[in-house]
Amino acid sequence: MKTSRFALAVCLLFPALAFAHIGQGDIGGGLVAGFKHPILGLDHVIAMVAVGLWGAQLGRPAIWVLPVTFPLVMAFGGILGGLGLPLPGVEIAIALSAVALGLMVAFAARPPLWLAGILVAFFAIFHGHAHGAELPDTANAISYAVGFVVATGLLHALGILIGVAQRWRGGAYALRGGGAVIALGGLFFLASHFSILPGLDA
């Protein structure tokens, strides 16, 4: 009895096995690839966390403008990448974005909101382009998009969550220190793209 119930539950949970959803709802065909893509590139990760940290430093309304705008602009970049339109210097721009955003956090910079938005959106296009261009051909489009947007969003959320430390004076300094570390990391990736550091292929 128990086994048959379990079997029923499995059938209800995985109807894709029996239905006309091959290549349409197959969750394995891209979800994991899309989710892993923004997380496995450390240059992406530090830049995304920096977006969250900066948003937390800026407070309202930036804290919602940045994470709401970023996925949309990134998706736009993803379209360019997905359609195969070339964008020069993508990897360099991504490393530069970590440097720039890290510096903003390190100096707790407070530019006008529109300027912060444009800066973040500019880099978001490059991040999206890289994800879109590196889409595996076998991947299911919507599963890949779900994985990739959710992973990016969770990285922002991580930055915002760490940014709660902003409320305490010591925490605020720690955040700025974190921004400096991110900027240094970006410099490292930048240098490795220009092969200034021997033996490094980021």
Binding site: L72, A75, I79, G84, G132, A139, A141, F148
Partner: peptide, 28 residues
């Protein structure tokens, strides 16, 4: 803010999937 962010994620997913789909032919 969280509800609005959820909306922006959904819109971004649609945008992205539409673009990828246009490249590879929809219905994949």
């Amino acid at each position: 803010i969280a509800v609005r962010v959820a909306g922006s994620w959904i819109a971004a997913i649609g945008l992205m999937a539409l673009a990828i789909g246009m490249r590879g032919g929809l219905g994949r």
